[in-house]
């Protein structure tokens, strides 16, 4: 199947008209769900993802509680209508793996030791998927955790870089992920310059990996700014109302 679609035109533009180092349009909203302690909604290109955070709260079943810190639990789930062919609502192996790597991408940012014997639950619902959903989920989940008032070392921002037509590109969409040569999701705590998630499939050389990580950092810094703006816009507004 590969190679049937031309992912880069003669001017070096991608199928959605972007340059190689350009992000898709991103919109982040904070505090969109009333029941949750923290929540966020993200649109990144055609991705539409809702994230709710509950906690710190009493953990059930109780024997899973840890005496020295909170348990972070993540559930990444795709709605059946989020993809062209209906996805079974039962959690797939992919969703189980992504739930785990997303949890481990967020965990370094949280002061879990401040809330022993509790749980912090992050629920991620992918309403529409168009490539790079794990990264957009992490970006939104970090904002939702901040919205829930959980003390954090830094936000976590994420983006997938990849290789299309032999070139390293930022923020792959679904077609680029499917027909490109490699996909490399990266998450960072941007202020601390630390990588909290790194995966890759496809074939890449060591030099390409280095270039990809640098490009990812570039994109992550832009997303970091959007995260902070989204948080400020909610809390500055509510501050003014009180004021």
């Amino acid at each position: 199947m590969k190679g049937k679609i031309c992912l880069l035109n003669e001017e070096g533009l991608r199928i959605d008209g972007r340059k190689l180092d350009q992000l898709r349009p991103i919109k982040i909203e904070v505090g969109v769900l009333k029941n949750a302690d923290g929540s966020a909604y993200i649109e990144q290109g055609k991705n539409k993802i809702m994230v709710a955070v509950y906690g710190p709260r009493e953990l059930h079943p109780r024997h899973q509680a840890l005496p020295d810190r909170a348990v972070l639990r993540c559930r990444y789930h795709m709605a059946p209508f989020s993809v062209p062919e209906r996805k079974s609502p039962a959690p797939s192996r992919r969703e189980v793996e992504l739930s785990k790597v997303i949890r481990q991408a967020l965990e370094p940012a949280l002061f879990l030791e401040m809330f022993p014997r509790t749980s912090i639950d992050v629920f991620i619902e992918v309403l529409q998927a168009d490539g790079g959903t794990r990264c957009a989920s992490i970006t939104a989940a970090a904002v939702a955790l901040a919205d829930a008032g959980i003390p954090m070392r830094d936000l976590v921002a994420a983006v997938a870089v990849g290789k299309i037509e032999g070139k390293i590109a930022l923020d792959l969409n679904h077609l680029e992920d499917q027909y490109g040569e490699a996909d490399i999701p990266v998450a960072m705590m941007p202020g601390l310059d630390q990588i909290t998630l790194l995966q890759a499939d496809g074939l890449i050389t060591l030099d390409e990996l280095k270039e990809a990580l640098k490009l990812a950092k570039n994109g992550i810094m832009q997303i970091y700014k959007l995260q902070k703006e989204a948080l400020k816009s909610k809390y500055l507004e509510s501050g003014e109302e009180l004021g």
């Binding site: 790597v101 481990q104 965990e107 370094p108 490399i184 705590m189 601390l192 310059d193 630390q194 990588i195 909290t196 998630l197 790194l198 995966q199 890759a200 499939d201 496809g202 074939l203 890449i204 050389t205 060591l206 990996l209 280095k210 990580l213 640098k214 950092k217």
Partner: peptide
Amino acid sequence: EGQICAIQKGGRGVFTLDEIMYCAE
């Protein structure tokens, strides 16, 4: 050929870019 065909970071900690390139090499 020494090309990377899969990467997976695990665990609750973090890596720096230099550490990742050290591991890759």
